[in-house]
Every structure is written in C-alpha cells, then in structure tokens.
Design a protein around this nucleic acid. Structure first.
Lengths: 211, 211
DNA sequence: ATTAACTTGCACAACGTTGTGCAAGTTATT
DNA sequence: AATAACTTGCACAACGTTGTGCAAGTTAAT
C-alpha cells in the first residue's frame, strides 16, 4: 500500500528536477515575481514539463526553500567556539558560502507564503546567534547597550546586507569572506582596528581555499 | 492654449488625492504586490475613483515615490558639519524621521520599474555620505580598510536595516533615533563605547522632541 | 438652489498568469 | 528493438488584475 510505481525514475528526469530548482534560485534572486515560464526557460525546459516534476508553482518554491534551508542548517550546525565573538565570526564565515540560498530567502521574507517555512529554516541560525550574544554579554566582551534580541536581528540584517551587496558589486571570495566577518564584529561593538586584529589573531577565522 | 480647465479643483478631491498616496505608502509598505483595490480601500475610496486622480496605477506609484523622495531630499539638504563623523550621524538622524518614505523605496528597489526614479531620489543622500567618508578618511577618523564606495553602500544598507527593523519591532522614537546613529557609527568603524561617547559629547546629535 | 465636480457601481475588454488534457515526439533503459 | 519514461506544443478554462464607458448618485462651492 506504500510506494514505488513501476520503474525507477530516469536519470535525466532527476537532473531536470534539480535544474528546475537551481533555475528558480537564479531567476527569483533577481526577480521575485518571475513566471514559471521564465524559470522553466532558465532550466532549459518548457513550462509544461515543470508540472511533470512539481504539482504546482508553490510546490517548486517550497522545495527550493526546503533544500536551501537544509544546506544552511548543515553549514551552521558544526559551528561552536569557546569565544562567543569568534563563534559569531564563524557563523558569518559559513554564511558567506551560502549566499545564493540565503539571498533567495531574504527576498521572500516580505512575501506572505513561504515566510513561515523560511522562519523555520533560519531558526538554528537565530538560536546560535542569540546564544553567543548572551554569553558574550555576560563576559563583557559584547556590547550591552542594545537588547540581546534586537542586537541579534541587527546582526542578521548586517550579514545579509553584506551578502546582497557582494552579489551586486562582486568582489574576490576571500575579501567577501573577511568583509562579512568584519561587519558582524562591527555590529557587535568592536572598533574596526579591533575587528581586523581579532580576525588576524584567530587562525580558525582565516580564509581557506577549499570550501 | 495652456492650462486650467473650467474651475478650481474641489477641496475634498485634493484631500482624496493625498489620501490615495498616503494609502499607497501604507499598504505597499507591507505588501509590495498589493492591488489598486487594496490601496483604494485603505484610502476609503472605490477602485474606480482612483482613475479620477491618476491615469494609471504606475502614475500613482510614481507620484508617491516622487513626493517621498523630495521629502527625503529636503530633510537632508541642510545637513552639514565640520566633523564628517558627526555629519554622517546627522544624516542618519534625519533619515530616522522619514522611515515611511525610505522604506517604501527600498521595497521597490528590487522591482524593475521605479528603480530609476528611486536611484535618482537617493542621489543626494549618497553624494553626502560618500563625501563625508572621503574627508573622514583623509583625517584618519574613518576606517580605510574598506573602499569608500563600498563603505558608503554598507552604511546605507545598515541605516535602512535599522529603519526596517524598527517598523517590525517598534521602539520609542528617541531610542530609534539613537540606534540609527549608533549603527551608522559602528559601520564607520567606531567601537560601541566610542560611538556612545561620541553621541553624548555632541549636543547637535541629541534627541529633540519637536521634529 | 443650482451647477459642476466628484464618487460609485456595474459591465466589459484586455492581459498575463497558473494548471490540466491530450496527442505526438524524443530519449534513457533493458 | 521494444518499452516506459519523459518532454513538448497546443488548446482551454479559471483567476486576478488593470483600464474604460456610462448612468446615477452625492457633495462642495457659488
């Protein structure tokens, strides 16, 4: 009574399915109102065949958000550090490699639908940030002139802003990676020389070419 | 061969016209895809009567952006200060009072149409910011580890982020006013104690109840 | 009180979009 | 080579939206 139909799905079909999701990310990143036609075209398919993979437009978008959020979550789950300041910088660092996924989410946070999904997806990120802020505050290493919750949101916004900025005005990966951390530390309350020094004195924050 | 038709426009008509623009600001601020129906309803009018004031939906939006941008420009033109850091804080301060106008613009910057208008509207702001950054850099009072242009954009983003954040999580006017300045100074490179002290030591940055 | 301005509701065309049915084509798999 | 999977194009209904015409109502101004 359970599952699998006649045969296994064809290889090119699953490729196309993935291509559609990737296409949605690309197209919607630059125009949140893009039509299915536009998305299908970007994937090299016809609009009609989309419905061979997804029941509806919304279904495709949900898949996209779901996959993106899992990637982001996976990139963040391993992030821990004794120093909360370094931990925040690390979070920023990891986020840098997920620009595409992050951006498409922030674009849709304004929208009604999907907002719920996205909030859920970003929860681990928010939890981690808030946690680090709290311990950092109690150690006197993070500013306490702004409420922890608000500071967390401001930090998140600041990180996203850098990610967006760097898609519109591209810059070398290595610089972008550093910039996100710098901005994050700045929001936390560090002066710019302080932030620069902090990054340089922590090898775990250094750029690594692999990724 | 020029202008005015039969009589002068009726008073309630011009009020309604203004109400429509205000309604558009309100409604579009929380849903950029809102229909004319929704806007008219918010203004207490029927969709049909909108066309008595504006030739098209786009016309209404253009009016709204135009008026908003002039208000913002007016709020910024008087801003000058010997100390570039203080000048940037002042710009942030003035922006605080134009949240509604600013927000609706940033919402539409993603959109295709209007983007051109908005860019033009924000030009004085950008010019002022960039100018202050340059002189601040040459005096060694503003960070020079990030290119002036990029820093200007980051600052702009940071200010907008605070404005948005404070509409979603409201806070007393006075606090918001200070928060925008703090964030701006933070982006410039000041540490948080430094920023707090800077604001307190400059009476021209203090909160004034009038507005 | 009269006039012209303004608003309203309804009907209608035009447009772009989503989702579905179907028949004919193409391509991976065995 | 045969089969099922997949893609495609076309046609079509449904939907929400914008913009317009018109006739009847309401309201500010003189």
């Amino acid at each position: 009574m359970t599952d699998t139909p006649a045969r296994t799905p064809r290889r090119d079909a699953t490729e196309n399915r993935a291509a559609l999701i990737a296409a949605a990310r690309v197209v919607l990143n630059q125009n949140p109102d893009a039509s299915l036609e536009a998305i299908a075209a970007q994937a090299g398919l016809s609009r009609r065949s989309v419905y061979g993979h997804f029941a509806s437009r919304d279904d495709l978008l949900r898949e996209m958000v779901s996959i993106g959020s899992h990637r982001v979550a996976a990139a963040l789950e391993a992030v821990t550090h004794d120093d909360p300041v370094a931990r925040l910088a690390l979070i920023a660092s990891r986020l840098w490699f997920e620009v595409e996924n992050i951006r498409v989410m922030t674009v849709f946070t304004v929208r009604g639908t999907l907002k719920h999904h996205i909030d859920e997806a970003l929860r681990p990120l928010r939890r981690g940030v808030l946690e680090a802020i709290h311990t950092g505050r109690s150690r006197g290493t993070i500013r306490d002139d702004i409420s922890a919750e608000r500071l967390a949101r401001l930090m998140e916004d600041a990180m996203f802003a850098v990610l967006e900025e760097s898609t519109e005005h591209p810059l070398p990966e290595e610089h972008g990676h550093r910039l996100v951390m710098l901005t994050t530390l700045g929001t936390i309350g560090l002066g710019w020389r302080e932030a620069e020094a902090f990054i340089d004195s922590h090898p775990e924050l250094a750029w690594k070419a692999e990724h």
